[in-house]
């Protein structure tokens, strides 16, 4: 009887020890995850705080006063934010239109190409990305001065298109390659001309990928700084340029609010892209 109770007690203490051991094993993981979360969300939290901080200076960990006066200032009818936002969106939309106008025919042609040639051409499209941006943009700016494109919307759009076209063509190629050529042939066989077959069959089936491609280009254009700076500033002010000016001038509230404005469409579109761009489409890029 006593032996039994002794044994029971022993088992209970053993179980408790085991539970403790498990907890200890989880500790490093929890710490690592916490650090990662801090690295990702810490700056974001700081940014959010700055957007609502009225007064915040050195020895204080948190703002001394909260309020929305800077929001009012940024979005006042004569504030620069509205203008920059409008410029940014106009530039981004024009960039998307130009990029897709080029990427759809290019992607269709590449998507129907046999494999080795396709990979090679796609690789060639990547080469400009391998060069450092700055010297390229400085030279573009110099050239644009000569032809009068500097400080114009067209100039900035052109720079953004050269940058966004790589993504656009890559994703468009993958989307078109994912559409079986036989589906188009079936339409031809039913009596559809080449264009009709493309618009009735190939384009609708490639559309999700093309939309994702457009969204990527839009976001890239919205975020683009270097090219806009060299070609557009000071005549054209996009949101990243406003952010730069505000940040450089020590106006962290305005900079943070601008940054937040840039962040919102990025996150919203990322969620959309995630739904549109399925893995089987992406997998076609290299195939």
């Amino acid at each position: 009887m006593s032996a039994l109770s002794l044994g029971g007690k022993d088992a209970a203490s053993q179980a408790a020890g085991r539970r403790l051991a498990i907890d200890l094993k989880w500790l490093p993981r929890t710490l690592v995850l916490g650090l990662i979360a801090f690295a990702i969300f810490g700056p974001l939290a700081n940014l959010l705080l700055w957007t609502v901080a009225e007064r915040w200076y050195f020895p204080h960990t948190l703002p001394l006063e909260y309020g929305f006066t800077y929001w009012a200032k940024v979005f006042s009818p004569r504030g620069v934010a509205w203008e920059s936002l409008a410029t940014s969106i106009v530039v981004a939309l024009l960039t998307v239109i130009c990029s897709l106008a080029l990427a759809i025919p290019a992607g269709y042609a590449l998507g129907r190409l046999k494999l080795p040639a396709r990979s090679l051409i796609l690789l060639v499209f990547l080469i400009p990305q391998a060069f450092p941006n700055l010297p390229v943009y400085v030279n573009i700016a110099r050239f644009f001065y000569d032809v009068g494109l500097n400080g114009t919307i067209a100039g900035v759009v052109l720079v953004h298109v050269t940058h966004g076209l790589v993504f656009a063509v890559w994703i468009a190629t993958a989307s078109f390659a994912a559409v079986d050529a036989e589906l188009e042939e079936a339409a031809r066989s039913m009596g559809a001309g080449a264009f009709r077959a493309f618009f009735d069959v190939t384009l609708p089936l490639a559309l999700p990928g093309l939309m994702a491609s457009g969204i990527f280009v839009f976001l890239e254009s919205l975020d683009e700084f270097t090219g806009s700076f060299f070609v557009g500033a000071p005549d054209i002010s996009t949101l990243p340029l406003l952010l730069y000016t505000a940040g450089a001038g020590g106006n962290y509230q305005v900079a943070s609010i601008t940054a937040l404005l840039l962040l919102v469409p990025s996150i919203a579109f990322m969620l959309v892209v995630e739904r549109f761009l399925r893995a089987d489409v992406l997998a076609r890029i290299g195939h």
Binding site: L183, A186, A187, R188, S189, M190, A194, P204, L205
Partner: peptide
């Protein structure tokens, strides 16, 4: 003549039905 001007209809091995 191009395939759409022959008034022939082809049934493909893969069926090639339009999924959309």
């Amino acid at each position: 003549a191009s395939p759409d001007r022959r008034n022939m209809a082809m049934v493909f091995q893969s069926y090639a039905l339009w999924p959309h």
